[in-house]
Design a protein around this nucleic acid. Sequence first.
DNA 1: CTCGTTGTTGATAACCATTATCGGTAAGTT
DNA 2: AACTTACCGATAATGGTTATCAACAACGAG
Lengths: 152, 152
Amino acid sequence: MVINNEEKKILSNYLAKRGLRDTAQRETILEAFLQAEGHLSAEELYDIVKSQDRSIGQATVYRTLKLFTEAGLAREVHLSDNSVRYEHLYNHEHHDHLICTVCNRVVEVKEPAIEILQSALAERHGFNLHDHRLYLYGICKDCRESQDSPNR
Amino acid sequence: MVINNEEKKILSNYLAKRGLRDTAQRETILEAFLQAEGHLSAEELYDIVKSQDRSIGQATVYRTLKLFTEAGLAREVHLSDNSVRYEHLYNHEHHDHLICTVCNRVVEVKEPAIEILQSALAERHGFNLHDHRLYLYGICKDCRESQDSPNR
DNA sequence: CTCGTTGTTGATAACCATTATCGGTAAGTT
DNA sequence: AACTTACCGATAATGGTTATCAACAACGAG
Ligand SMILES: [Zn+2]
Ligand SMILES: [Zn+2]
Ligand SMILES: [Zn+2]
Ligand SMILES: [Zn+2]
């Protein structure tokens, strides 16, 4: 069990500031979340949490993920059209997502020039930008090659 | 009743190419869609269609909007997190969306430089880009001014 | 035109991720 | 201890979307 002191502190501070309580469930869910990689759904996290503490309910996982988001520990990601997923936010640089529509592979990408242009664009329209979502959909090299292969 | 011959032809061509049929319902829904402005949900379009032909069912509107999307007449927009909305695509230049998170106003914006950088970014990762979604969330000038007003 | 095939439709049930509800519990306070 | 309030888990409910299915309409072959 890795100890993520920084994240725990952030959560504790957030809870204290709001008059909320630091409970065992929230710590268990935080640890499960921090140990998981990638972009996971509430239900996937619920499965992990269950294997740790069978008594924790599904609704609590939903509630707590929302809490993490508000506390700045998690970020919502909408990879495909329906499901919401979560990724680590604290200590992770901002990035956007490049998604292969054939194999569903997700690549995290950074392009500071785009970020700057976004701010300028918003500014030009009188907006104070505080968030954005950029999803790039395409076909990755592997899928292109296997599609072009001479079977068919 | 405006006659949108071009769009009707596009739909007819698409249907013919796929061996699908050109029905009265599809034409009614197309006309309703083309007359509506902005970004509307399937249910909103259904309300409009109903006022035209009460016998058309909700499922048909959902099906037909998907059809329009495949035919290149409509484009899905995901303004807020849950609902899917549709906007005109044919004869409308590509744009992205700037959304005020206070009043929900939506501004359509264009920034060719961002588009170019997106392609280059995808290319660099071996992807063939065929679509993207960019949503910019901020607070518009009006909302900023009314928030800063000295009542409170 | 008749018949068989296949796409289409509307009503409705089902789905499924998420949220609301609620009774009970635990933490913190006085 | 008594009280307040946040929290929890179980479960029902929600709401947008999709699947199902029987009836129907277009089409093509004969
Ligand atoms: Zn970005
Ligand atoms: Zn990511
Ligand atoms: Zn764009
Ligand atoms: Zn638009």
